[in-house]
């Protein structure tokens, strides 16, 4: 549990989306990820939570190798994921796999489940019997073997997502990025997929980066939770502590927004925090603390200085002027 398999340091990803100005063209940039650092311990589940547009998927895609970061370093088991010469070696592609949000587009609709599963097998296990491996994968995720010859449109959303998980497992990865794997599914189906993921994690010693916008779900599966807002992490701590003792005003706002279904849960919601406002466009991130447009506890300093990420108790970090030294300067 102690070995850090992934180290992300000061990661930034800016997209140029447009240019303005007639003569001196100025690029318009979206600061999708804007300086993020975190570690991931072997075997843990780090939950990454945030509203849409906060940059969660961008982090996932960078880790999976779809984009190069604008700035920052990522080390996986001590190896630089984005070395100077560009291409990610095959053995790193094998170790890091991703499950996408949309089960509908995750599988090729014109190819059978077996053909879909064969893609990573042919690349990473060319000397193995593809048929036997496919059967092993289906067994691993509890799908009947006859599913091999089905086409994706014959499967329900949950089943498609389970096949996508099987495909990610085909390379025997040690690290899986799960980008909102159940947000397109009904709650009644979600449980099956989540339980499968949890079982696979313990059976296969997997490390998860689990992205979701559902804090209640996170409560039940994550060892640690990180909250993102406008490309930055505002709070990160151990799962249990997180829900009992949320510190950052944004975290409190998120918690108080959750629709709950029992009295026990109502007690956990910070009652005084009434959600207001909407997430600003990542093109115009407010100066100072980016949450200052919605924060009920904002102070003058929040409009001038971006707060530092400080450790407010053991293993519990937050980015807010309410904590730490920067408060004095205001």
């Amino acid at each position: 549990m102690s070995e850090a398999i992934l180290e992300v340091r000061d990661l930034k990803k800016h997209f140029v989306v447009d240019h303005i100005g007639t003569f001196r063209r100025q690029p318009v940039t979206v600061r999708a990820v804007d300086g993020i650092s975190f570690d991931l311990q072997a075997g843990e589940t780090l939950g990454l939570v945030g509203e849409s547009g906060s940059g969660k998927s961008t982090i996932a895609y960078i880790l999976a190798g779809m984009y190069r970061p604008t700035q920052g370093r990522i080390h996986f088991r001590g190896l630089d994921l984005f070395s100077e010469n560009g291409k990610r070696p095959l053995f790193l592609k094998k170790e890091i796999q991703i499950v996408f949000q949309d089960p509908g587009s995750s599988l090729n609709p014109r190819r059978t489940i077996a053909q879909n599963l064969a893609v990573p097998l042919q690349i990473h296990k060319p000397d193995k019997n593809i048929m036997r491996e496919t059967l092993r994968l289906l067994e691993l995720v509890d799908l009947p073997a006859i599913y091999m010859y089905k086409y994706p449109n014959m499967l329900s959303g949950g089943e498609k997502q389970i096949v996508a998980i099987a495909r990610a497992l085909a390379t025997d990865p040690s690290f899986m990025i799960l980008d909102e794997p159940t947000s397109a599914l009904d709650v009644s189906v979600q449980g099956k997929v989540i339980n499968l993921l949890m079982r696979l994690q313990s059976d296969l010693d997997l490390t998860y980066l689990f992205i979701t916008h559902d804090l209640s779900l996170m409560r039940n599966i994550a060892t640690r939770v990180a909250i993102m807002y406008l490309g930055k992490i505002c709070e990160i701590s151990k799962g249990s502590e997180f829900f009992q003792n949320p510190q950052h005003p944004y975290t409190q706002m998120l918690l108080s927004s959750i629709p709950v279904v029992s009295k026990d849960e109502e007690k956990l919601k910070p009652a005084k925090m009434i959600p207001t406002g909407e997430i600003p466009s990542p093109v115009n991130i407010p100066p100072g603390c980016s949450f200052n447009t919605r924060c009920p506890k904002k102070m003058d300093v929040c409009f001038e200085i971006d707060p530092d990420f400080v450790e407010i108790s053991r293993q519990h970090f937050a980015r807010c002027h309410l904590f730490g030294q920067t408060q004095k300067q205001g």
């Binding site: 796999q97 991703i98 995750s106 090729n108 893609v119 990473h124 495909r167 390379t171």
Partner: peptide, 11 residues
């Protein structure tokens, strides 16, 4: 995503 997924596994 199925194309992306093939790309990042190294197809």
């Amino acid at each position: 995503f199925f194309v992306t997924s093939a790309e990042i596994t190294g197809a």
